[in-house]
Design a protein around this nucleic acid. Structure first.
Length: 567
RNA sequence: UGGGGUAUGGGGUAAUUGGCAGCCCAACGGAUUCUGGUUCCGUUAGUCCAGGUUCGAGUCCUGGUACCCCAACCA
């Protein structure tokens, strides 16, 4: 299936029941062939990987059927929302490669919502309740237990209208009154037990300023905003399934400018070892456990971007998992597979040594001044893409190699360097180990080898093979760099497995930083922010904010550790 | 305790709507390879349970089981 290796190559995408619904509507002519969706984030934090699924579903459906998808900020709660968050959200959507047809805000409709609330009041379908939140909640009853009517439920239309106007005028204190829909306090669906539509909140809103002191709730704002905009298919996550009856109820009683939209619910995207809860991510930022919303350890889109995840990998992953109603937790490795898949085609290859030991070539020549000869080799930048060309890498008789690339007593299946064995130094020469020096603790610190001048460039004229090709960095030319290895972002988040403070679950070993690893000089020419593959070590992103600091994006095959264990 | 949902190999996701259970990841085996990467070939393994209808059931019927969501003036 590699005939088409372009980034746009469509992999088989999983099924999508919303697409089926759209098709059915097209056949039935429900919306006159119109398809309109919307992505409705609340600007109270940065977008995380979980949102990517919704973005791709919303924009994807519109794209697939030649419809439009708008961005609509669900900014109905002035307590938590900020312009900074709205900006970051728009930026992340663009990064993923989508362009909203329009950028709307629920707050654009505060006036319509206010008018429509009066429409409901006039029909006797909404009333002002003077009770406090606790009382209202208690009266709501419980599962299997009916609720009881508020004593204010039967107020006259005139009185409700008057009270509602005065709520808006700021005559009442915060929390002293609410506007409620008059539906059914006996309903099995808790959301139909006279839900709150407006609450009094004397607060500054980041867009409407101090124009309002009453704010609509999610339920009163969402479906109505969809209806005003002309949305046809309104997708949200599974926990809103019970709200659909309310969504429909409101719209059934209002003078809508378009055909009535319908809500569809799909399962939220969850990963192993990953926190996808905006509340907890906000907590990490607030308490300074991370450097910010875009910290590379964060599962936010901005964090992943900084970590080197290509947007295409995230999109391909989402397409592969489809849109279904089954609650499921995806192995984070699955996302990483897509990251490697994309990166393998484009990441430049470089050599680096994370845990260096010295390799001395005893028969390496000296020049007339008695210094070691320096030879330069042209090494291919990306074997997957010859057009990336080669780079010149200096080579001498004193090199750094990876500590784990040498074993005094090689276990079975180990085919790198060991005494008497010949291996290839990538792009340079074949070398054969002769002896090793150890420190006081018995660790190998220096390996002595001899090289075969006939194998210059890395291949033997007599056709003999070696079982291993190792990476290396010239000791006299190496740059020191710092590498951050992110083992796990956060602890496993599984319902039932979490006890106490969520932050206690974070693995303190989640970040391992290696200081002073050795990288080849050509790395310095690689532009910042780019992802390179360190030969055999995995993919690393050069942090644009920190000179010579690399974040591990993903390993090649993270099973290396397991293989080691088996040996 | 009432209501709303969901169940397909180890993890996900399909099945022309009643017609050979397919695909991706993982695992395992082999081939290629100047990265223990990539690529290629192959193997293992699945319809929640119990009945029923039918020539034929993942799909339809009956009855169970498990898990998720709902009693915010959050979204």
């Amino acid at each position: 299936m590699s005939a088409d290796t372009s980034a746009e190559s469509p992999t088989s995408s999983a099924g999508d029941f919303v697409a089926d619904a759209v098709r059915a509507d097209a056949i039935a002519g429900t919306y006159g062939g119109r398809v309109q969706t919307r992505f409705p984030p609340e600007p109270n934090g940065y977008l995380h990987i979980g949102h990517a699924k919704a973005i791709i579903a919303d924009f994807g459906i519109a794209e697939q059927f030649g419809g439009v998808c708008n961005l609509r900020f669900d900014d109905t709660n002035p307590d938590t929302e900020e312009a900074e968050f709205a900006d970051s959200i728009l930026h992340d959507i663009h990064w993923l490669g989508f362009s909203p047809a329009n950028v709307f805000h629920a707050s654009d409709y505060f006036c319509v919502l206010y008018t429509w609330a009066q429409v409901l009041i006039e029909q006797g379908l909404a009333y002002v309740d003077d009770q406090d939140a606790e009382t209202v909640s208690a009266q709501r009853g419980g599962y299997g237990k009916p609720g009881i009517d508020s004593p204010y439920r039967e107020r006259s239309v005139a009185e409700n209208l008057d009270l509602f106007h005065r709520m808006k005028a700021g005559e009442f204190s915060d929390g002293s009154r609410v506007l409620r829909a008059k539906i059914d306090m006996q309903s099995d669906n808790m959301w139909l037990r006279d839900p709150v539509m407006y609450r009094i909140r004397t607060r500054h809103h980041f867009r409407t300023g101090d124009d309002w002191c009453i704010y609509p709730t999610y339920d009163w704002a969402h479906g109505q905003s969809d209806a005003v905009e002309g949305v046809t298919h309104s997708m949200c996550t599974l926990e809103f399934e019970d709200h659909r009856a309310l969504y429909d109820w409101f719209l059934d009683h209002l003078p809508l400018p378009h055909e009535q939209p319908r809500q569809y619910e799909f399962a939220r995207l969850e990963f192993t070892h990953t926190v996808t809860s905006k509340r907890r991510l906000a907590q990490l930022v607030r308490e300074g456990r991370v450097d910010g919303w875009d910290d590379p350890r964060m599962p936010t889109l901005s964090g992943l971007r900084r970590r080197g995840y290509p947007a295409s990998a995230i999109k391909e992953f989402c397409r592969s998992i489809g849109v279904s109603k089954t609650n499921s937790t995806h192995a984070i490795e699955e996302l990483q597979w897509h990251v490697r898949e994309q990166l393998n085609k484009v990441a430049l290859r470089r050599m680096a040594v994370l845990r260096p030991i010295e390799l001395v070539i005893d028969n390496w020549p000296l020049d007339v001044a008695g210094n070691q000869v320096v030879e330069h080799f042209d090494i291919v930048n990306n074997p997957e893409d010859p057009s990336e060309g080669t780079r010149s890498v200096p080579f001498t008789g004193r090199l750094w190699i990876e500590a784990e690339d040498f074993e005094v007593n090689p276990p079975p299946g180990y085919f790198r360097l060991s005494p008497g064995r010949e291996v290839r130094l990538r792009g340079a020469y074949f070398v054969t180990a002769t002896s090793a020096e150890t420190d006081d603790a018995g660790r190998v610190v220096r390996v002595h080898v001899t090289y075969d001048p006939a194998t210059k460039g890395g291949s033997a004229p007599d056709g003999r093979k070696v079982k291993s090709t190792m990476h290396w960095v010239s000791a006299g030319h190496a740059h020191d760099a710092t590498v951050g290895l992110y083992r796990h972002l956060f602890a496993t988040e599984r319902p039932g497995e979490t006890t106490g403070d969520p932050l206690d679950d974070i693995d303190p070993r989640s970040r391992e930083v290696l200081v002073g690893c050795k990288v080849e000089p050509a790395l310095a020419e690689t532009s910042r922010g780019q992802v390179v593959q360190f030969e055999r070590l995995g993919y690393f992103a050069l942090d644009p904010d920190q000179p010579m600091f690399f974040h591990r994006t993903v390993g090649l095959k993270d099973e290396w550790a397991a293989q080691q264990k088996r040996l």
